Amino acid sequence: MTAPTDLLYSETEDDLRAAVRALLADRAGHQVLLDRIETDDPYVPGLWKSLAGDIGAAGLLVPEELGGQGASHREAAVVLEELGRAVTPLPYLTSAVVATETLLALAGEGGPAAGLLASLASGERVAVLAVPFSTAPHPPVAGGEGIAEGPVRGVADAVAADVFLVARADGLYAVPTADAVVTPLTPLDLTRPLAVVDPGGAGGTRLADGDASRAAVRRGLLAGAGLLASEQLGLAERCLEETVRYTRERHQFNRPVGSFQALKHRMAQLWLDVVGARAAARAAADALATGSPDAPLTVAVAQAYCSKVAVRAAEECVQLHGGIGMTWEHPAHLALKRAKSDQIALGSAGRHQDAIAALMDLPAPR
Rank of each mutant, 00 (worst) to 15 (best):
T2Q: 04
L8F: 11
L8G: 12
T12F: 08
E13A: 11
D14F: 13
A18N: 10
A18I: 10
V20K: 06
V20A: 01
D26F: 11
H30R: 13
Q31F: 01
L33D: 01
L33S: 01
I37H: 03
E38R: 15
T39S: 09
E65L: 09
G70I: 13
E82S: 07
L83T: 03
L83G: 03
G84D: 05
L93T: 00
V98S: 08
L106C: 10
L116E: 10
S119F: 05
S122K: 13
G123M: 11
L129M: 09
P132F: 01
T135K: 00
G143S: 06
P151R: 07
P151S: 07
V155C: 05
A158K: 11
A161W: 04
V163S: 02
V163G: 03
G171E: 05
A178S: 15
P184D: 05
T191W: 00
T191N: 07
P193Q: 06
L194K: 09
A195F: 09
G201T: 10
A202F: 13
S213V: 15
R219K: 05
G220D: 08
G220L: 05
A223W: 10
G224N: 09
S230V: 11
R238H: 13
E241Y: 12
E241G: 09
E242W: 04
V244D: 06
Y246H: 13
E249F: 07
R250V: 12
H251M: 03
N254E: 14
F260G: 06
Q261T: 12
A262G: 07
D273T: 14
G276R: 08
A277C: 11
A279R: 13
A281P: 10
A281N: 13
R282L: 05
R282F: 04
A283S: 15
A283V: 06
D286E: 15
A287K: 12
A289Y: 03
G291L: 04
T298W: 03
A300T: 11
V301C: 03
Q303T: 08
Q303A: 12
Q303D: 08
S307F: 02
S307I: 04
L320P: 07
G323A: 11
G325S: 02
G325D: 02
P331R: 07
H333M: 12
L336T: 10
K337W: 04
A339V: 01
Q343N: 14
L346P: 02
G347A: 08
A349I: 04
G350D: 09
D354A: 12
I356R: 14
A358Q: 11
M360V: 14
D361R: 14
